[in-house]
Design a protein around this nucleic acid. Structure first.
Lengths: 346, 346
DNA sequence: ATGAAAGCGCTAACAC
DNA sequence: GTGTTAGCGCTTTCAT
């Protein structure tokens, strides 16, 4: 299709019988220049008549700001697209951005594409700043971008780097989950991680689990921990392995609801019942958690807020009125459903 | 933070000792003007030295194209953000767009915000075209945009409007599901829709269900259909109601896996077993479907392809080499798991 | 083979 | 109050 002819401010000015400048002032509601009400109306009417829309590209050209933030997704598809997490983050992000007149450019980075150079987003001025989810510590592009002073906010933490971030209090959440189990009377508590320990969130959840154990005077037993990998399938295998150890743990903390789904199935296949034979507590509180069998007790992750806060932090940095707190840790809370019970008397 | 100083093509030209024009030619690989290898190298070296990045805004200004497509989400949050559908569509969309050098601007439209005027996206030239998911037939903004000739592709259909679209073959999929049940020997088959019938997809799935029934000489019985509303909760209620009718249906087609989750729970609460007491077949094949209890037999919806095809159609229209087929219907297929069995001998 | 110059549509400083 | 004008950084035609 042919490029549609643009109506410019010039056209509006001509029709209204004024200059381009006046049009610009009227349409941007510039009050300094006091413009007669009559002129105002003429301009507004002309704009309406011609169906005039100011050209965002031209405006960006001259203002130097795009009013767009980039959302870079630096995660594997199974992690990012298979769980119910991303949509909510994106939702929070978009709403916070929209509220301040910003748009969101979505940029997933396929993992099999090493040199995507998403730094071009800001270097070529497609966006004013970047929110990056799932930072990897070996991400050269990211580090350079930060050195160059690009406005950047991470969702998820990166150890030893001073980039502003928003994250969930993984340690606190994991501690809470484990304490809950302990308080129910469990002493032999397994752990299935949400992901390999190279992921910060995973290491942190393990750490919270240990803390709770140790605070209760329980020994950390490495034979009771297994490693998930984002997927239900990985949870199935991890739980199957855990069901081999003797004595059996009476409860398991699965640090991801999605992974817990597989664990649930493994337990069913083993002919065991939840929570009477074994208790299970998850992490994330995916929207479906309450409809599993049994409804899953879990730690609620404020996904929407994660996106919202990240956007707020970035936008504040962009408007630069004052220094932003360099990071924010979001609290979790426990959602009690039906997958945990006191251990069997043995 | 202060606006970072931009390195312009002028700077590169100066350092390389050539003109701006030459820089542009070298960097854009314009071959018409044959430029000496020596000059080329000088320019490239200078650009590298200065860490030069061409300004996308300026380029858009002069080329008249943004190389951005808008993804407008015209759906309620519970529909869009609570299921596993959106991320996959978005993934397909982005990959198809990226492959052709396009970026994706994400624009969700909160339902409580009637006058969002997303048409501004194209009118103000934030984007070259729009992919809109979940069109509503009363969307004035959409219709006007189409009349104005804006490049537009829908995900989901709109009756009586000739806007290009990509959609799933809902009728075929629903027929397939119902036929499968019939073929297992069921004669009394209930339906729980995915949403109110004002949603095209919902009406179509109902239609496919009817077709299969009638083709098999089975009467359509209105007392066997109930209406879901995207959520597990609605599925719970619909199934609970269905379990009151006598004689009980021996199988139910739930036209959404998410809704089926609630149906599953209602059946459990009624003390019935799946599939021995009642068979259940879903629709969508959410990633978790195989890990439910029992693993859910369902109709696979090619969500990734939906996004991919929509992008392909839009981009083809933008490059306008030739007329694009105005629509595309994507096939579904049945994924057999363990939630269906022949009816009990009664 | 290289350079000069004309815009793209807008904003904003400055003049009248 | 309103108009004139100078760019923003780039692409691209036309001279040289």
């Amino acid at each position: 299709m042919a490029t549609r002819k643009r109506v410019t401010a010039q056209d509006v000015a001509r029709l209204a019988g004024v200059s381009r400048t006046t049009v610009s002032f009227v349409l941007n509601n510039v009050t300094d220049m006091r413009i007669s009400e009559e002129t105002r109306q003429k301009v507004l009417e002309a704009a309406r008549l011609l169906n005039y829309h100011p050209d965002a590209v031209a405006r960006r050209m001259v203002t130097g700001r795009t009013r767009v933030v980039g959302f870079v997704l630096r995660q594997s598809p199974e992690q990012a697209f298979a769980d119910l997490f991303l949509p909510q983050v994106l939702n929070g992000l978009s709403q916070a951005a929209a509220r301040q007149g910003y748009q969101v450019l979505f940029e997933p980075i396929p993992p099999d594409q090493p040199n995507t150079m998403y730094s071009r987003l800001v270097n070529e001025r497609h966006v004013d700043g970047i929110i990056l989810s799932g930072p990897r510590f070996d991400d050269e592009d990211l580090l350079r971008l930060h050195r160059e002073g690009a406005p950047l906010v991470l969702i998820g933490r990166l150890p030893d780097v001073e980039i502003p971030y928003v994250d969930v209090d993984n340690i606190g959440g994991a501690r809470m989950a484990t304490e809950y189990l302990i308080q129910k009377g469990h002493r032999r508590i397994g752990l299935i991680t949400n992901a390999p320990l190279s992921y910060t969130a995973s290491a942190e959840r393990l750490s919270g689990y240990r803390q709770a154990l140790e605070a209760a005077g329980l020994a950390f037993d490495e034979t009771l921990v297994r490693y998930g990998n984002f997927t239900p399938h990985s949870g199935y295998q991890a739980m199957a392995a855990l069901l081999q150890v003797r004595p059996l743990p009476t409860a398991v903390f699965v640090a991801s609801d999605t992974v817990a789904l597989g664990a649930l199935q493994a337990i069913r296949h083993a002919g065991l019942r939840i929570p009477s034979d074994i208790s299970l507590i998850g992490f994330d509180d995916i929207p479906l958690a309450g409809f599993l069998d049994p409804p899953l007790t879990t730690i609620h992750l404020p996904a929407f807020n994660l996106g919202w806060e990240a956007a707020e932090m970035l936008l504040q940095r962009l408007s630069a009125e004052e220094a932003t707190p360099p990071y924010r840790l979001l609290a979790t809370h426990l959602v009690e459903r039906e997958s945990c019970a006191p251990p069997r008397k043995s």
